[in-house]
Amino acid sequence: MHELSIALSLLETAEEQSRQRGGVRISAIHLRVGPLSGVMADALAGAFEMATERSEFAGCRLVITETPLVINCPTCKAEREVESIQKMCCNVCGTATADVASGRELEVFAMEIDE
């Protein structure tokens, strides 16, 4: 259950962003979470609620976009979406590879600020 550690890092990021903008209120945080990030979206949302409960971010929404798992296929020389995390291979030619193009994301990409 490392989602609480991650939620606390997220809270720090939000506090920093708020401070940089003169203490604005952040009403929502938009995240991208990949299947290889090692983070469960539901658990992160629960942990974030717990982490922010008694802070100025209480009630701040988390909007989580789950990104697809994409590999760089060495045979097709192209980015290919992977059907299952248990089968890391090209969905066109079947070549197995660990060269991940997308799917490790664990990032904030936008915030909603009240003005």
Binding site: T13, Q17, D42, R61, A110
Partner: peptide, 30 residues
């Protein structure tokens, strides 16, 4: 998924009194 959808306190407040929300791009690894 809007996972922590909470009803905003401002939902009963007339629209002109509600705070304006602006979406800003922030690219940062958590």
């Amino acid at each position: 998924t809007d996972l922590a959808a909470k009803s905003e306190a401002g939902s009963q407040v007339p629209s002109h009194l509600r705070p304006q929300t602006r979406l800003v791009e922030v690219r940062q690894n958590i």
